[in-house]
Amino acid sequence: MSGTSLDGVDGVLIDFAARPARVLASHGLPLPPGLRAELLALNASGADELHRAAVAAHQLTLVYAEVVRALLGASGLEASAVRAIGAHGQTVRHHPPGAWLRGRRVDAQDPGFPPYTLQLNQPALLAELGGIAVVADFRSRDIAAGGQGAPLVPAFHREVFGQAGSSVAVVNIGGIANVTALTSDGRVLGLDTGPGNMLLDLWCARHTGARYDRGGAWGASGRADPALLARLLAEPYFALQGIKSTGRDLFHADWLQRQLQGFEALAPADVQATLVELTARSIAQALRDLPWGEAELSELLVCGGGACNDALMAALRRELAPCPVLTTAERGWPVDLVEAAAFAWLAWQALEGRPGNLSAVTGAAGPRILGAIYPA
């Protein structure tokens, strides 16, 4: 998995035949700086995009292949023992139905601006290099069925974190934050809440030179500005109710720059502290807005890079008190493995001919088998 944060590639080797599923090996690699910069640039229009995207996809696939080799080496398994690689690819465009982008509404009936999602990947090359079947392109079928194509992880969250009789929420804080609600009556709800680490990383890199705010220390040194926070939260996306998803197509450097007009006197650390509050507040508000029914939230489990940001975790605990806010590691799943494990599970679902989406989450017309299969 290489997510919206563009911080690296996480790989996990899992035996889903075991009950519970058993992690056999894990490995992570940072993205080479040049590739990271190019993938970030490809989120916006530019010159020679088709060629640049193909080159970036090739380079990213080589990193995927290196992670696969490391997983096999760590586990002692041969490639022939692995049924498939689930390779999500790198999202560079996400235009789901109903989104307002570039001043237009994405609409299936508009031939000039139809729904689509695009993940850079070369799954045929990965199958060739790894000698293992590859399942890729998970989001397109859900989009074709009228869904948002995201989030896709809630079905996996139900498998590993569901607790009979309890209402549990799982939030993955990557570049974008997405939340899964597992209600005590068996319903599964989910949506993208908005920016996770994306704006935090951007602002930190701009003012400190570091790719991210390690432990949230820099953000914790500042003080959130209430007026700026109110302006950020006024973004119409946060007020949308029900099924929704988002990405860098909406929340990007230019969006942040527009919000900061008139706040130029704020210290950079205070802006960072405000962005921490934005992520926490938007997650908490989304949880409060979900139709939980009579039940109260028993606990929130956090995974993704945001779980390592102490300032962000503290803000979430303040927002959701007295509800316990834990990391998924406290329930047996390391925070940096959950999303990669989810796409391994989605690959397994595809191979078994089982649906991977939840239409109540994505808005698709119904359950669909997700992913294209590239044989070894």
Rank of each mutant, 00 (worst) to 15 (best):
residue 145 A to D: 04
residue 33 P to A: 15
residue 370 L to Y: 01
residue 364 A to R: 01
residue 174 G to I: 02
residue 25 A to T: 08
residue 308 C to P: 05
residue 144 A to V: 09
residue 151 P to Y: 14
residue 17 A to E: 10
residue 114 P to R: 13
residue 175 G to P: 04
residue 202 L to F: 14
residue 363 G to N: 07
residue 226 P to I: 09
residue 339 E to W: 08
residue 245 S to L: 07
residue 348 W to M: 10
residue 316 L to H: 01
residue 11 G to F: 00
residue 27 H to W: 12
residue 30 P to D: 11
residue 255 W to M: 05
residue 75 S to N: 04
residue 229 L to E: 15
residue 124 A to Y: 06
residue 121 N to L: 10
residue 280 A to G: 05
residue 162 G to Q: 06
residue 235 E to T: 07
residue 352 E to Y: 11
residue 289 D to V: 02
residue 175 G to S: 05
residue 267 A to H: 07
residue 286 A to F: 01
residue 254 D to V: 14
residue 170 V to Y: 01
residue 169 A to I: 00
residue 14 I to G: 12
residue 306 G to K: 00
residue 321 A to H: 08
residue 153 V to D: 00
residue 351 L to F: 04
residue 337 L to M: 08
residue 161 F to S: 00
residue 243 I to D: 06
residue 215 G to C: 03
residue 163 Q to T: 04
residue 257 Q to D: 15
residue 74 A to H: 05
residue 99 A to D: 06
residue 324 P to I: 15
residue 354 R to E: 15
residue 168 V to L: 07
residue 283 I to Y: 00
residue 360 A to H: 11
residue 332 G to D: 11
residue 206 R to Y: 00
residue 150 A to C: 03
residue 168 V to S: 13
residue 320 L to Y: 13
residue 370 L to Q: 00
residue 90 Q to N: 08
residue 12 V to Q: 10
residue 63 V to G: 13
residue 343 F to S: 04
residue 195 P to I: 04
residue 283 I to E: 07
residue 214 R to A: 13
residue 268 P to S: 13
residue 47 A to K: 14
residue 297 L to P: 13
residue 172 N to H: 07
residue 54 A to G: 07
residue 106 V to H: 03
residue 289 D to H: 09
residue 169 A to G: 09
residue 109 Q to H: 10
residue 147 G to Q: 03
residue 246 T to E: 08
residue 35 L to W: 06
residue 5 S to N: 15
residue 164 A to P: 04
residue 11 G to H: 02
residue 199 L to D: 03
residue 339 E to I: 07
residue 158 R to C: 11
residue 270 D to Y: 10
residue 293 G to W: 01
residue 316 L to Q: 00
residue 12 V to W: 02
residue 62 L to D: 05
residue 287 L to G: 05
residue 263 F to I: 03
residue 48 D to K: 14
residue 24 L to R: 10
residue 265 A to C: 11
residue 237 Y to K: 06
